[in-house]
Simulated assay, not measured.
Amino acid sequence: MAPWLPFALLSAVFAALTAIFAKVGIKDVDSDLATAIRTVVILILAWGIAIGRGATAGLPGMSGRTWLFLGLSGLATGASWLCYFRALKLGPVSKVAPIDKLSVALAIGLAVVFLGESLSWRTALGAGLIVAGSVVLAL
């Protein structure tokens, strides 16, 4: 088994739980406030793990390029979360979550274009099925 596979599967489980918990949690709260609260919880959790594992020792050696792209990733994540929570506030999880998962197909395309990753017929077919499935579920 690939060493990344258990983490990817757990990521999917936690992402599914995120949608369910968020939908219940934003019932009587502004979606932007809900995102801010969620972000604080994630901030505390992530820094607690990084400090606990001693990962912060790598901070001084990080390059400006690393900071730039991690910062851009953080901005993209924040924008994604704000949009996701707003969508959950306005729509059902069964329609919002599949559209959100179009990010998988988009990430594959962007990885091919910008990172030079190869695109096999299986990967292309899988991405196409994700798009088709998202459309079917959202309609």
Rank of each mutant, 00 (worst) to 15 (best):
G58F: 09
I42Q: 08
W67I: 11
S80W: 07
P3K: 01
L5A: 14
L82V: 14
L17R: 00
L110C: 04
G58T: 11
A105R: 01
L137P: 00
G91E: 08
A107G: 08
G91D: 10
A132V: 15
V136A: 14
Y84F: 15
A138H: 11
A34R: 02
V135G: 10
I130G: 01
V113Q: 05
S118R: 14
T56S: 06
D32C: 00
D30K: 11
L68R: 03
V135A: 13
K23N: 05
T77V: 11
A15Y: 13
L5S: 01
R122D: 05
R65N: 01
G133Y: 04
S11G: 15
L106H: 01
D100H: 08
D28I: 05
L5Q: 08
T123D: 02
M62P: 02
I26Q: 01
I26R: 01
L102Q: 01
S11E: 06
A16F: 12
G61H: 07
C83F: 13
V40L: 15
V96Q: 02
G91K: 00
T18V: 01
L129P: 07
V41M: 10
A19V: 08
G133D: 05
Y84R: 00
M62V: 04
P60N: 08
K95V: 11
V29T: 12
A55G: 15
D100V: 12
A127P: 06
V104C: 01
F21S: 08
S134V: 06
T56P: 00
A19N: 05
R38E: 01
L88T: 02
V135M: 03
I44F: 11
G133E: 05
D32Y: 11
S120D: 06
K27Q: 12
W67N: 10
R86G: 02
M62D: 05
G116C: 08
A2I: 08
S63H: 01
S80N: 10
I49D: 08
L82C: 07
S134A: 15
A79Y: 02
A105V: 04
P92F: 09
E117P: 01
I99C: 01
K27D: 06
K101M: 09
W67K: 03
V131Q: 04
P6Y: 07
S31H: 13
L33C: 03
A138P: 04
A2L: 06
P92K: 09
W121P: 02
A76Q: 03
A15K: 05
A12V: 13
L102V: 04
S120C: 02
L45S: 11
T123V: 14
A15D: 10
P92H: 13
S94N: 06
P92Y: 11
L33E: 10
A46C: 13
A8Q: 04
V131H: 03
W67Y: 14
A34Y: 13
K23Q: 08
A132W: 12
A97H: 03
V40E: 02
V135L: 14
L139V: 14
L102M: 12
G58R: 13
G126W: 02
I26L: 13
M62W: 07
L17I: 11
I42E: 03
K89G: 11
V131L: 08
V135D: 05
K23E: 07
S118F: 00
L88M: 08
L82R: 03
G109V: 09
A16T: 15
S134Y: 04
W47P: 00
A12T: 14
A12K: 06
A57K: 13
P6W: 05
R53T: 15
A22G: 09
L72R: 10
L68K: 06
G128C: 04
P98V: 10
L5R: 06
S94F: 00
A107I: 10
L33F: 08
